[in-house]
Design a protein around this nucleic acid. Structure first.
Lengths: 339, 339
DNA sequence: ATGAAAGCGCTAACAA
DNA sequence: TTGTTAGCGCTTTCAT
């Protein structure tokens, strides 16, 4: 009973239509639609307007509104690898929820690391008068900021660029490494190996620092020979098996869930049981893997959802200022059954 | 506190600014900016305009343009689980690329299956005058279409709703199942088990139909006892191990990569080698898993990128009409080393 | 309590 | 070849 004919091809009803139908001016319609508190509209008039609105199926034209008020409700999100990882999805989700909460909508663009696509994407967002841009990468690293990003407010998510002056929201790698190690220590382990990545990155240095600091806090001497470099994938974990066993350790902190998965295979081949013979913790909390390994993998989560949400908050100026413009997000422990 | 940020970027230059700077009318500016072919502009004037443009750093206001021409360049994409799976990312990526190619930009919203969020998202898209909406789910299934979707052109992606009259773009499960089975047959296997899912879905029936048709085409009798039901995750594959071995089969087609991963574990525990003692193919081509299992898993890909891209094409009327409004996208074989 | 009118930045006839 | 003039749908003073 509410809509007359909302044909796909019929032009949508405008305020003018409502005004005519209700026998009032568009100004009045605008006032009741937006529930302006300054304006006093007669109860009877308000009523008529509302009737006209759902009789005609009116819906405000956000674009016209934007043009009129001068500031849009768009926030752009440019990601470098939406497709290759579930992580990007989490960032988008977090950003979307938070943006939504404040009345903004997300304009997303994927660039697969392509320079040209990136510039096009940014240009398009600027043309759409975005309030600002979230520029995100799928793994934590330092980047060169595209020049065009400086034309609007932008915040870096899961990446940073020292000297760019742009605020960055990144995971707290060191705290994460410390947390992972502490899980092992708390379970009584003293000789703990750390399979670290071989690719230079904040993750490499941060997690190592965390590992050392956890050890130190527990009064355990750091033994360089216990940190084993490996390609950060299943293959790396598998290949590290022999070294792990030879080290005499009783627990291992893996650089990420995928190397833990590879290590599981290696351990199983040697007839070793997790966690009885060897405790293991991963990093990332990559759901498809961690939750379904046997036994389910205890790990530390990369807070992608929070990264996206926090990104929006700093963009909107809702987050307490950080002096160095680096917003560190905590990586929480996810306990399952491998420790 | 930080009100400085708000003043960082001055109001962007408008066409009027350019017009003044170049000493011409806005109409002229509009013409050169859009390279209107109808209008002849003096080379010298055009020059001046261009100079003013990059002197003032002009950028067209897409919103104003939309309002003026009457049709926007937005396409909405509402997804039910952007965060929980890498698949959604692929759909977005495909949609984004294709939309972009035709001058459209994507407005994305995530709803996590929440009814209210869904309606809000759709309403918001309608308010932004989207050209149409892509409604996608993260696994292929039949759905009830939200009423509001009928207020604009919409196409269903990775889901369908018979009787809704809405076009749907879905993976060709049957062809996929057939392809997977054929990979095994081509490798010389005759006794092939199929670990099928237990959850009712197009995947359950479609892949089974494909399995049977491949068998039939190869002159192999279908043996009901060779299809083993299992939870579609690692656990299901692992638990199916005994039945698989007992069946005397030499190859198995797994409902998805995750069950294949579980099966790998089970097989390894029994000292069986893949593919020597048992050939296995998966389904989905879930990169993080399939490419890194030992040995890397041969599988059949769910064409998510194509799903998204094709969705845009049918929305834009670029795809040859399909009578039943069902657009089947092929699932290609991905050969690795498990067969 | 309500309406008239002037924009917002841009496009598109139609003039000149 | 270029400028004038209406809008597009909405908000917002300022009148009435």
């Amino acid at each position: 009973m509410s809509r007359e004919r909302q044909h796909k091809h019929g032009a949508p009803a405008t305020m003018r239509d409502i005004a005519k139908e209700a026998g009032v001016s568009v100004a009045t319609v605008s006032h009741v639609v937006n529930n302006k508190k300054g304006a006093r509209i007669g109860e009877e008039t308000r009523q008529r307007v509302h009737e006209a609105i759902d009789h005609l199926g009116y819906r405000t034209n956000a674009l016209a509104k934007t043009l009129s008020v001068g500031s849009s409700r768009f926030i752009g999100l440019v990601a470098d690898a939406i497709a290759t990882t579930p992580f990007a999805g989490q960032i988008i989700h977090g950003a979307q929820d938070e943006a939504w909460k404040h009345g903004y909508v997300l304009l997303v663009a994927n660039t697969e690391g392509n320079q040209a696509a990136e510039n096009d994407a940014i240009a398009m967002m600027l043309e759409h008068q975005v309030k600002g841009i979230l520029y995100s990468t799928w793994y934590h690293r330092e980047i060169d900021v595209p020049e065009s990003l400086h034309q609007t407010d932008t915040v870096l998510v899961d990446c940073f660029s020292t000297g760019s002056g742009l605020p960055a929201v990144v995971p707290n790698e060191e705290q994460g490494g410390k947390t992972a190690t502490e899980e092992l220590i708390a379970a009584g382990h003293q000789r703990i190996t750390f399979i670290n990545t071989t690719t230079p990155s904040p993750a490499l240095t941060g997690r190592l620092a965390g590992y050392r600091s956890a050890l130190e806090a527990a009064g355990i001497d750091f033994d360089e020979s216990l940190v084993i470099p490996a390609v950060p994938e299943q293959e790396g974990g598998y290949e590290a098996t022999a070294a792990i066993i030879a080290s005499g350790a009783t627990a291992v902190f893996c650089h990420n869930d995928r190397v833990a998965m590879g290590l599981y295979d290696g351990l199983r081949e040697q007839g070793l049981d997790v966690p009885k013979d060897m405790a293991v913790v991963g990093f990332d909390n990559q759901e498809v893997i961690a939750a379904h390994l046997r036994p389910p993998l205890s790990t530390v989560a990369l807070p992608h959802y929070e990264l996206g949400a926090a990104g929006i908050r700093v963009l909107l100026g809702l987050e307490p200022e950080q002096d160095d413009e680096m917003y560190l997000i905590e990586c929480p422990a996810i306990r399952r059954q491998s420790v």
